[in-house]
Simulated assay, not measured.
Amino acid sequence: MSAAPVRGTAAGSLVAQRILGVDPGLTRCGFAVVEMRPDRTGASVAVEVAGTRSEQDLAERILAIQRAAERLLDVHAPDVLAIERVFAQNNAPTVVGTAQASGVVIAAAAARGIPVAWHTPSEVKAAVTDDGAAAKDAVARMVQRILRLDELPKPVDATDAYAVAICHAWRSGVGTRHDMSAGTRTHQGARTAAQQAAARQPREATPAQRAWAEAERRAADGRSSPGAPGVSRGRRAR
């Protein structure tokens, strides 16, 4: 009989973590509980999409999302909750509903002392597929591969919840030999593949920066020459 997976915390970078990933939404809120291992593989523990109807009273809809989150938190006791950060859109009602769903889920985790981490959609895609602009089907295929699922995860809300959990595991240091626990509350530094490539290119100074550098060089040369007039550091040429 195999031993039960080692339960870790958000600060343990060399042990398995149980993560509740959330793709927030008021009409459909995706939840996925995964066990992420140090070898950068994982397993699905539970997945579901909590749905509400637009004709329902708003208070009832928010309460339904809250109760779904509370049940999953109590049953599966994750080490950390990872949630997709609200993404600004032109559709204001959708943004408001997503924010409302996010709020009650975050509050449910906080009430249980479970740390919360936020990840932007581009961070999630970049972490799972190495492309911050990856299509939904590409994310689904990678989630299936990483978690060794028998079939592609469905619906998209479940896929995104899985992806958020995987993103957090890899960003927080599961399977690495360093501890990134200090950064598990928020993750704003993830870069897409294109951004990483751009960062590797030597940065070229702007014309204004080059002009200022040349002026400073000339000033330094003038100060080093005997009898040359000094240049005041307190004033810049206009």
Rank of each mutant, 00 (worst) to 15 (best):
V6E: 13
V34R: 03
G230N: 00
A133I: 11
A126G: 05
V116I: 13
G230F: 01
A193F: 01
M180S: 09
A4Q: 07
Q188D: 09
A69Y: 01
D221I: 00
G173F: 05
A190R: 08
V104S: 02
F87S: 14
T27F: 03
R191Y: 03
P153V: 10
A43N: 06
Q196T: 04
A64P: 06
A10T: 04
G183N: 10
A111Y: 00
A190H: 04
V231P: 00
I19V: 15
E151A: 15
R71F: 06
D79V: 05
A211E: 10
D179V: 13
W118H: 14
A190I: 12
R236G: 12
A169Y: 01
A211S: 11
T52S: 08
P229W: 00
L72E: 01
V6H: 08
T52N: 06
P78A: 12
P38M: 11
V143Q: 07
A182M: 13
G12K: 11
Q209N: 04
K154R: 14
V156W: 14
T176L: 10
V164M: 08
G8F: 05
F87L: 12
I83H: 05
S44A: 14
L73H: 03
R233D: 12
P24E: 03
D39F: 14
V49N: 03
V15R: 12
H168K: 06
G12V: 10
R171T: 12
A43P: 01
V174Y: 11
T9H: 02
V49E: 11
L58G: 06
K154M: 06
R217T: 02
Y162H: 15
D160V: 08
V95N: 04
A16T: 12
A127Q: 15
A182K: 10
